[in-house]
């Protein structure tokens, strides 16, 4: 392949992924509201379009037309920068996550991932760490005590949980012997999903990703009753929408990451069982990836509408005294599997 072809193919992949991604972000907001209403015996949005399906667009229009208020006491450059950091991180992490196997299309061999980076997992961890800056800047630059408290909470929380998150990824890397998401998915062939082999690591990673995305029961940075909305109290109009969309984009990223690392990525055991080949196999594998993400998203939302928020000391206790040792235990478990059982 010439450079030109590589550039064009990559651009097509980026456009395709970004459009699907943006649409699913918009609709995850819709489904959040729908699932919330189902859990509370309500109907939910049903006025805009059939069953309220156009609600996300109505929301975006509403937010675009709102006045953008920047507080007097704020640090204006940082105040403007913060939502962009949040969005940038949320959207760029997706580049390394494979959503399908290698396919042959029009004589080209195309890998169904935007960038097959050999240190993809490091890239993801690094970028999710930058996400802390978005929220912390937002809290600090708003010039409001509630926002500041939210920002500080989020930085403490995200740093604490990043430790156990990183250690639980350690187990996955040990098994796959690679930092590349593509290799990690290939290592989980058939039913060799990491969630089954190392359930402890799966649970710690799942809980940590709840904390990383600031979702309930770990949404202390937002905590409406105590912090009036936390770090985004002083944001309005599209800047607020930026944080809002980033939260949902982060949810999708986390779901995709959990799928890739623990639930076999695009691996679909049915393809092997029924010996399906060619285009159908690829379609089923990409479909399996989407379904896994959708189920995890549902789980994220479901948990939010079931559980109360943790208190701050409980959150820290859980992070350092429970999740961290469990993640270490998981690494030992994987090491034993490799040394003794030679998986």
């Amino acid at each position: 392949m010439s450079i030109m072809e590589i550039v064009v193919i990559t651009l097509i992949k980026i456009v395709a992924i970004l459009s699907v991604f943006l649409l699913s972000v918009a609709y995850s907001v819709y489904f959040e509201r729908k699932i919330a209403s189902w859990a509370q015996n309500r109907v939910g949005p049903n006025r805009v379009g059939w069953n309220g399906l156009l609600q996300p667009f109505a929301d975006v229009f509403k937010l675009l037309l709102k006045e953008d208020i920047v507080p007097e006491a704020s640090n204006k450059p940082l105040h403007t920068l913060a939502p962009f950091i949040a969005l940038l991180v949320a959207f760029s992490t997706y580049a390394v996550i494979p959503f399908g196997p290698e396919v042959e299309l029009f004589g080209y061999k195309i890998n169904l991932v935007v960038a097959d980076v050999n240190i993809g997992i490091l890239y993801v961890l690094a970028f999710t760490s930058i996400a802390v800056y978005g929220i912390t800047f937002a809290g600090w630059s708003s010039g409001s005590k509630y926002s500041l408290l939210g920002g500080i909470r989020s930085s403490a929380q995200m740093i604490s949980y990043e430790v156990s998150m990183g250690f639980s990824v350690g187990g996955v890397i040990l098994l796959a012997e690679s930092l590349s998401p593509v290799k990690i998915v290939e290592a989980q062939h058939g039913w060799m999903w990491n969630a089954i082999i190392q359930p402890i690591g799966f649970i710690t990673f799942l809980v940590s990703s709840f904390a990383e995305t600031n979702r309930l029961p770990f949404d202390l940075p937002e905590a409406e009753p105590e912090l009036v909305g936390g770090y985004h109290t002083e944001y309005s109009s599209m800047k607020f929408a930026g944080f809002f969309l980033a939260e949902y984009a982060n949810m999708i990223i986390s779901s995709a990451l959990i799928t890739t690392l623990y639930l076999g990525g695009w691996q679909n055991p049915l393809v092997d069982i029924f010996h399906i080949q060619g285009g159908w196999a690829v379609a089923m594998q990409v479909g399996a990836f989407m379904i896994k993400i959708a189920l995890l998203l549902f789980f994220f939302i479901w948990v939010r509408w079931s559980l109360p928020r943790f208190r701050y000391d409980q959150l820290m206790n859980l992070g350092w005294k429970v999740m961290f040792p469990l993640a270490l235990l998981n690494i030992i478990w994987v090491a034993v599997l490799i040394m003794v059982f030679k998986i």
Binding site: W38, Q40, N41, V43, W302, V303, S306, L307
Partner: peptide, 21 residues
């Protein structure tokens, strides 16, 4: 306990609601 809570909301999701439009 978390599973118990999740079960409760899940059963609630399939309960018919009494909303009037």
């Amino acid at each position: 306990e978390i599973v118990k809570g999740l079960k409760l909301t899940l059963t609630n999701m399939f309960r018919p609601n009494v909303t009037l439009q």
